[in-house]
Amino acid sequence: MAQIMLWEAIQRAHDEEMSRDPMVICMGEDIGVAGGTYKATKGLYEKYGPLRVMDTPISEGGFTGLGIGASFLGVRPIIEIMSVNFAWLAMDQMFNSAAKIRYMSGGQLTAPCVFRSAGGAAHQLGAQHSARMEKVFMGIAGLRVVTPSNPRQAYGLLKSAIRCDDPVFINEHELMYNMKGEVPDGEYFHPLEGSDVARAGTDVTLFGYNISVHWCLKAAEILDKQYGISAEVVDLYSLSPLDRDGIRKSVSKTHRVVIAEEDEAPVGVGAEVIATINEECFFELDAAPVRVHSALVPQPYNHTLEKAAIPDHEDVVKAVLKLFGKA
């Protein structure tokens, strides 16, 4: 199994699917001649040409809608939104056209398209380039939302999203494209629905997704070594639909819960996970679930303020210790 970077994993999924099926195309700003802002489409323009690797004008609403329209006729476009902040401009088409088309046409049309976008807060990009928007996407009927935390998922989820007949939004992270990890050498599909147990444990469940999985893994290490607390880390890579079974299974085992998310409360992934726990397995809880989340502020530019706005593994450790009465 090869160790590759996350952007290479995404590039490989594109390449394999485009070479298999001439109806798979990709489109977005700077993805062709320039090779992609995060190199995720490197070399594809040279290999597949401008008809299938489309450098688009900076018209997010327009080219997203264009990709969706093509998908009604069986084209499978992979639409890259360079930064998730620009997705606000494309949401009308994503939500009103792609997500609802199957339902409002009584099953006659589907929109088998993939939206990929770099999300999350990077370094000092300020208020309009640091949005975390997964909370918005995961509340839309008819749209699947996945968010990879490692190269294996990034490869396998994109492969699955391209094959899936539903529109899929893939929320990537600006800081994670150079992360290295193992990806199977042979073709691999990561299931679009479910969750991964990233680390098994018995005393507390740490729920995370995308970058916060890494905070949770680091926190679990510290909790184990320094405090003798065995933490299970569950990677909720599918935000819509959420893996209700996976959530119930882990909570029923550990009875304590911390949810770590890079988005803001109120109204975030954590709120939805807690609601799911209430509905699925409330009486398994030994303590009220705790969420670790970003501050509800437009992202500040100043480095110190930015750090204060976003949680990290230390905040996860603190939350767990509080849960155990050790802080």
């Binding site: 001439p22 109806m23 195309i25 008809l51 299938r52 609403g61 327009g62 080219f63 997203t64 809608g65 264009l66 990709g67 969706i68 329209g69 093509a70 998908s71 009604f72 006729l73 069986g74 084209v75 009308d92 088409q93 009103n96 056209s97």
Partner: peptide
């Protein structure tokens, strides 16, 4: 479609599919 102007890019996308 109920959003005024919404079909414009969809129409271009359908044309793109025909072209492909």
């Amino acid at each position: 479609y109920a959003l005024v102007g919404g079909p414009f890019p969809l129409a271009a996308g359908i044309a793109k599919a025909i072209q492909l």
